[in-house]
């Protein structure tokens, strides 16, 4: 237990002192801000034209200027952007040990390797949840600033529930990113894989196999009206569990030469 506490202390301090989570936070604010801008342009086309803003494009992008439309668009965008942000955070927490060559500091200490991995997973999950909360809060703040009509309690509640569901599904898949960061000994490969997964997910979605592909399940979970079947949920949980087991096994068994 002391080992786990020590590992948590180390990981929390490292994450707090790192710039990456803060930069990812700024990056994750962009979707609601950009969509809010489009809404504002659509709402005030004359003012926007005076400032030389793209009114025609904004008209193509959005329908009505109201909370349900705005939150629906944010949900769709954040499904993908949030997933990449989660992947970057996880890749960083695991991959930095190789990039900074600090991996060997963690090894051959009384703190078990499994404790280190659990602490890393826990800290990465905390960052991801904070990020999700931040993205939701930013969306509501942007919507309020733009002054959109039609916000009702059920809409706000459903939006938070959808975002929470998407965040939890992405968290469940996080160990796969951790595994790729460990095996790939760095953070570039898992980030590349996350981007590639997004592209593959689009293809799988088009073929109708989305409910069987865990990353498609997570992407669509943020979209209003999407029903996730028990089988899809089980696939996501199984993928995450296998990722976690493989990550732990890799750290326990493989040669650590970095």
């Amino acid at each position: 237990m002391r080992g786990l506490a020590a590992a948590f202390y180390a990981e929390a301090l490292k994450a707090r002192r790192s710039l990456v989570p803060w930069v990812v936070g700024v990056f994750a604010t962009l979707p609601p801000v950009m969509l809010g801008m489009m809404m504002a342009i659509k709402k005030h086309p004359d003012d926007a034209q005076r400032f030389g803003l793209l009114t025609v494009k904004s008209r193509l992008l959005v329908g009505a200027v109201d909370w349900p439309t705005f939150l629906g668009l944010v949900g769709q965008t954040m499904g993908a952007m949030g997933a990449i942000a989660f992947a970057i955070l996880t890749a960083w927490v695991f991959g930095r040990e190789f990039a900074d060559r600090t991996c060997r500091i963690m090894l051959a200490t009384p703190t078990r390797r499994s404790s280190m991995i659990l602490a890393k997973t826990g800290v990465a999950a905390m960052w991801c949840l904070l990020l999700a909360a931040w993205m939701i809060a930013a969306s509501f703040a942007v919507g309020a600033i733009v002054g959109m009509p039609g916000l009702a309690w059920p809409i706000a509640r459903d939006t938070v529930a959808l975002a929470g569901r998407a965040a939890l599904l992405w968290l469940t898949l996080m160990p796969v990113t951790a595994l790729i960061a460990s095996v790939g000994r760095g953070y570039l490969l898992p980030i590349g894989c996350a981007l590639a997964t997004m592209i593959v997910a689009q293809f799988v979605n088009a073929t109708g196999w989305a409910p069987w592909f865990p990353w498609c399940v997570a992407i669509t979970s943020g979209v209003t009206g999407t029903h996730i079947t028990a089988a899809s949920l089980a696939i996501v949980i199984l993928t995450g569990a296998l990722g976690m087991a493989a990550t732990l096994l890799w750290w326990e068994r493989s040669d650590q030469t970095a």
Binding site: R2, G3, A6, Y9, A10, L13, T111
Partner: peptide
Amino acid sequence: EVARRLQD
């Protein structure tokens, strides 16, 4: 401090 804790 991190090393001290990891070394117990």
